[in-house]
Each structure stands twice: as C-alpha cells, then as structure tokens.
C-alpha cells in the first residue's frame, strides 16, 4: 500500500525543479544506479541492437561502417540456407514435442506419488533430484559414453538381455530420442519439486469432503488434484517449451548436431554463424527469429499466469 502512495506522489515532486527531486530521490536513484548501468549495457542495449544488427552487414572494424542491407540477412538464413535453417527449426520443434511426450507427465506422476509415500519420502525426493544438481556438461559427456554404439553401457545391456543394440546416437531416428531421454533424466527431478510444492497448497478439506462422499482415489486425482495443480502444469509446460527452444549444450557436446544434422538446433546454427563464419548480421537475424518465437511464448505464459492469478 505504501508503495502506491509514493508512486502517485512522484509526478508532483518531479515538477518542482531539480534540487527537491534530488534530495527526494537521490538515495533511491543511487541504489538503482548499478543495476541501471548493467541493464543498459548488457540487456537493454543488446536487445535493442538485435533489431539493428539483423538488418546490417555488421562490421567489427570501426573504420568501416556497418552497411544497411534490408532483409538480406533474413533472405540468407531463410531462403539461401533454407534446408539447414529448416532442419534446425524442425529439430528444435521435434525436441519440444518429444520432450513433452516423454518428460512432461513424468514429474506430475512422481510428485503425486511421492507426496503419498509414508515410506522413504525424503529419500525419493533426493534420489530424483540428484541428476538436476549435476552439471549439464558432466551429464552430457557421461550419457555420451552410456549411449556409445555397440559397446556403451546401454547397448551392452541391450545385447546382454538379448535385444538388438540400438546405436542411439548414430541413427537419425534415435539420436533425438537419446537427447530427450537424457534431458528428461536430468530435468524431471527439479520439475517434480515444483509440483510437490504446488501439491502442498491443495486444500485438505477438498480431499476430506471427497472421501466422505465416497470418491475413489482415481476420482480424487481427476477431480481434485489435477484441477488444483493445473495452473502450475500449464506454466511449466510453457517454461519447458521455452527452455527447449534454446537447447545447445546437449547436442553440441553429445552429437555435434549429427548424425546428418539430425540434432542440429537453432542455437547451434547461431553459434556456427557467429564463431565459424563470423557473419554477425545473419547470426543476429536468426537470433531475432528465435527472439520473436520466445517472446510470443512468453506472452502466452504471462497471459496464462495472469488469468490463473498467480
């Protein structure tokens, strides 16, 4: 409440010259200064620059000014590079879809189940959370060994129990699935913790009333638990999609985008344009496209959060 009164008084104070505002706001501004400085340099300015560089033939040399090239960069990344760019976008979307199929409901199940456990409750929480604590690079390299065709742990076990070795990362059909499985292994625990927190806020009276009315456990899950955690589920779905669009480290280390670009992602494309071709304009143009997709998703996200009043 206090904050609002201060905010409303602001314009009146600002009108009275400079000395009064400085006395009035000096301390607040001084406290804001470091953040404002950092944000200007490393957030607002680069964000703004995305919209500039994407339309330029960017030059690093200060003596050669950057040239405006209109939509040329976009023509390059969308039409000239069409097959590579399309592959990158397709792969990312495939990653999103597979990730949702394989990994979206798993944490929901884990949270609901673990929340009911009278035995080993905290053991389960920790056991499922451990992969999330490990660094992504560590997990990715380790799984690369596990996935090694024929001789890796997974294929060895497959052969041992009499199945065909899969050769996870060398087949176009399974490489993406391999990445998704690893991502799920790594990510499910942390998501589960968020669901567990959401479950704590489900009113106990609802369960009590339902039980008195003779609702079965399945009915209680369907009509109480799931509707109650639905807002969180929607938010986490969008967050998972946003996160997956930016995937880089996993395919970069595990498959280098292969086989036959089967796991090549949008961010890897940007990386290649940036550090292999030094083509900043085109890298930025692709970045802008990613930017637009992510902002679109974030707008949906904030709509959802606002509507659900969290």
């Amino acid at each position: 409440m206090k904050v609002q009164t201060v905010a409303r008084r602001t314009p009146a104070g600002a009108r009275r010259g400079f000395v009064v505002p400085l006395r009035r706001y000096g301390l607040g501004l001084a406290f804001l200064l470091p953040a404002l400085l950092l944000f200007s340099l490393f957030s607002w300015w680069p964000i703004l620059q995305t919209f500039i560089i994407s339309f330029q033939d960017y030059s690093l040399d200060p003596s050669v000014p950057s040239r405006w090239v209109g939509l040329e960069n976009f023509r390059q990344v969308l039409i000239v590079d069409a097959d590579i760019a399309a592959t990158a976008w397709f792969n990312v979307i495939l990653f999103v879809v597979l990730g949702l199929i394989v990994g979206y409901f798993l944490p929901v199940f884990l949270a609901i189940a673990i929340n009911e456990m009278r035995h080993g409750n905290s053991f389960f929480r920790i056991a499922y959370y451990i992969p999330a604590v490990l660094p992504l690079v560590v997990v990715t390299i380790m799984w690369k060994y596990i996935y090694t065709p024929e001789e890796g742990l997974l294929d060895s076990v497959f052969r041992w129990v009499g199945l065909e070795p899969v050769g996870w990362l060398i087949n176009k059909g399974t490489a993406m699935l391999g990445l998704v499985l690893m991502a799920t292994w790594k990510g499910a625990g942390a998501t589960m913790i968020i669901y567990l927190a959401a479950l704590q806020s489900v009113p106990q009276e609802l369960y009590e009333a339902a039980e008195l009315d003779g609702a079965s456990i399945r009915q209680r899950i369907r009509h109480i638990t799931l509707p109650q955690i639905l807002p969180v589920m929607l938010i986490l779905a969008i967050l998972q999609i946003i996160g997956t669009f930016q995937v880089f480290t996993e395919p970069f280390i595990m498959t280098q985008g292969g086989p036959a670009r089967g796991t090549y992602t949008v961010l890897m494309y940007i990386y290649d344009k940036l550090l292999r071709e030094y083509n900043y304009g085109q890298a930025s143009a692709m970045g802008l496209l990613l930017f637009l997709v992510l902002v679109g998703l974030t707008v949906i996200y904030s709509r959802v959060t606002k509507r659900l009043g969290r």
């Binding site: 904050v3 201060v6 905010a7 602001t10 104070g13 600002a14 505002p21 009035r24 706001y25 301390l27 607040g28 501004l29 406290f31 804001l32 953040a35 944000f39 957030s43 607002w44 300015w45 680069p46 964000i47 620059q49 995305t50 560089i53 946003i242 930016q246 880089f248 961010l267 940007i270 940036l274 900043y280 890298a283 930025s284 970045g287 990613l290 930017f291 992510l294 902002v295 974030t298 707008v299 904030s302």
Partner: peptide, 27 residues
C-alpha cells in the same frame, strides 16, 4: 526508497524477463 517513475522502472526490468539471454546472444 523513493524513486521517480517507479512503474516505468519496474516495467523496464520486467520486460527483460521475457527475453532469455540466448535470444540476444549475438548483440
């Protein structure tokens, strides 16, 4: 503390939440 245009500052900070750093990696 008292700050001028608090709503504008909040909005400017809030906006950046919408853009993950990977999206403006190049700039």
């Amino acid at each position: 503390l008292r700050t001028p245009c608090k709503w504008l500052l909040l909005l400017l900070f809030f906006m950046t939440l919408m853009v993950p750093f990977q999206a403006y990696l190049v700039p």
